[in-house]
Design a protein around this nucleic acid. Structure first.
Lengths: 184, 184
DNA sequence: AAAATGAAATTAGATTATCTAACTACATTG
DNA sequence: CAATGTAGTTAGATAATCTAATTTCATTTT
């Protein structure tokens, strides 16, 4: 998990903030000659930003005692609700994790009564997973904050920046999803 | 940890890819009225992208049997090398985790001979942490790939997109670092 | 200077999110 | 109907975190 809870009453001595410079110097010395340094720099910024963004989301969800993976799963159930039979295998597939990991997530969610499992009557190996009324209530409680957090992430951008940024996000997402072989 | 190793020989039945639409519909119904929906949509894309970006980095580093957190720590040691006395407390502070967590990371790295600990002679409560020759060799082996991966993240963008994107990244990073109270 | 306070690191024990391998129950197929 | 394969779970592991307690020093206060 990526949890960062901050601050003991610590540390007299502390390390100065480095900023980006030393990373660039290091890159100068260690990047292969066929790597575009300016792109690499932007990539580095993106990695840092990604880390921070997920932290913000975690902090946000923590207030509801749920983590991103689990919330993701509830959202998935919400969105497929009524349309298709949702099994642990299908969930594993979609989330890109193993069935055993899904079992663990479901155990946790079921203990809190946010999902239910029911054996399929047509194929008794399979389990039908559903979000419960309580689960739905949780999702509905979380979503307004979640959307507002999402929105706050980009709210500082100027309209013209937003415009380009949207195109960029869509492009990068599609490139990277192909690369990883995933997709929401 | 965010590890996603993909694919059992699984799942006959599978869930259709949803794409962005159902999320937007849900947002319509569940976002607070003072949330800018278009920004929220972009924020959502950013969260997805962040997830994927960290996965790419993980996959990359996995080849060297090291994870992002641990590599981060080695990088930190590399960049402060010789300049300041690096203690577990200072590391905890910088990484935004507890001292106890740092102890665990250091134990792991020390076992592999990538860092060393030495008691400070001036204040015997403190420990001086240093990257070893082997540690440095590892970092040097990883970095070329790492930079090239960073670069590959944005390489599909057009020059004009890159230009705006860079400004955006810098802005977002600074906004979010203020918000979280962190910084590299 | 002895006692109290506080800081640095570690230890112990917990939780979350993963994994692999093995197992059980069932279904399909040859 | 025996063999093979699939769905889900269990068991046991690792990683990254946490809190609380403990140890060892250093500093401050009386």
């Amino acid at each position: 998990m990526r949890k960062k809870n901050q601050h003991d009453h610590t540390a007299d001595q502390s390390l100065p903030k480095l900023g980006v410079r030393p990373y660039l110097d290091l890159m100068e010395k260690t990047a292969s000659s066929d790597t575009n340094k300016h792109s690499a720099y932007m990539g580095l910024l993106m990695v840092w930003l990604s880390d921070n963004i997920l932290d913000v989301v975690d902090v946000d969800l923590a207030a509801y005692n749920i983590t991103e993976s689990k919330f993701d799963l509830l959202l998935l159930l919400t969105l497929h609700e009524g349309k298709e039979l949702i099994t642990p295998s299908a969930i594993a597939d979609r989330l890109g994790i193993r069935r055993a990991s899904v079992t663990a997530l479901l155990d946790w969610l079921e203990k809190r009564n946010w999902i239910s499992r029911e054996q399929s009557s047509t194929d008794r190996r399979m389990v039908h997973v559903r979000i419960t009324t309580e689960g739905r209530a949780l999702v509905e409680a979380v979503l307004p904050t979640f959307w507002s957090t999402c929105s706050s992430l980009v709210s500082e951008l100027e309209p013209d920046e937003q415009q380009v940024f949207e195109k960029v996000l869509i492009k990068l997402n599609s490139v990277i999803e192909n690369r990883l072989g995933v997709g929401k």
